[in-house]
């Protein structure tokens, strides 16, 4: 039973975007701060630190999770994916990312990483998710720029593209 006392810094090991990483942090550090300021993965953004805005959403073991509501210490042994892990290759966008660009589903881009991680998790788990399910999933995110409609369009377009690719590979 590990005990992390308030004074110390502790090694936390987990998988980040497919790579095993170890980072050192005090027991009270939030996962957002560990990702951004210890590991330098600044694509995950911080908007409210009380779990409402969704900007910091990452995938933990395949599920979308608010990184601001998770202690870094709780990431021990987890498989975490952030927006930095979405690109298939440098300079190449995933179908979801490409759909966001094509449908102007982002403006300032600050909330976008969290939204991408949520939608990516949903489409991976439920490839046939209905538009209602997509909306219900998106309702956990606040976007102040787009008015949301282009995001829904992009999600549906990405879904169609992914299904097409799936069919082609089958």
């Amino acid at each position: 039973m590990p005990k992390l006392s308030r004074e110390g810094r502790y090694a936390i090991g987990f998988r980040l975007n497919g790579q095993e990483v170890t980072a050192h942090a005090p027991g009270r550090m939030l996962l957002t701060d560990l990702l951004r300021h210890v590991l330098g993965e600044t694509g995950t953004h911080v908007g409210c630190e009380h779990g409402v805005c969704g900007a910091c959403t990452v995938q933990v073991d395949g599920e979308p999770v608010r990184a601001c509501l998770m202690l870094a210490a709780q990431a021990e042994g987890a498989d975490i994916r952030t927006v930095e892990g979405l690109e298939p290759a440098a300079g190449e966008l995933s179908p979801l990312q490409a759909a966001f660009r094509e449908h102007f589903a982002l403006q300032c881009g600050f909330c976008t990483a969290g939204i991408l991680m949520s939608l990516d998790a949903l489409l991976a788990r439920i490839p046939d998710a209905s538009e209602d399910a997509i909306r219900e999933h998106l309702s956990g995110h606040l976007c102040r720029c787009t008015g949301y409609a282009p995001i829904v369009k992009a999600a549906l377009a990405a879904q169609a593209q992914l299904k097409e690719e799936e069919a082609a590979n089958a």
């Binding site: 039973m1 590990p2 005990k3 992390l4 006392s5 308030r6 004074e7 005090p26 027991g27 009270r28 939030l30 701060d33 630190e49 009380h50 202690l71 210490a73 021990e76």
Partner: peptide, 21 residues
């Protein structure tokens, strides 16, 4: 908006959690 310091105990079994509590 950062937590005040605390000690963190990761229990692996129920007995450990109850003892820590």
């Amino acid at each position: 908006m950062k937590p005040a310091p605390f000690d963190y105990v990761r229990a692996d079994a129920l007995g450990e959690a109850l003892e820590a509590l």
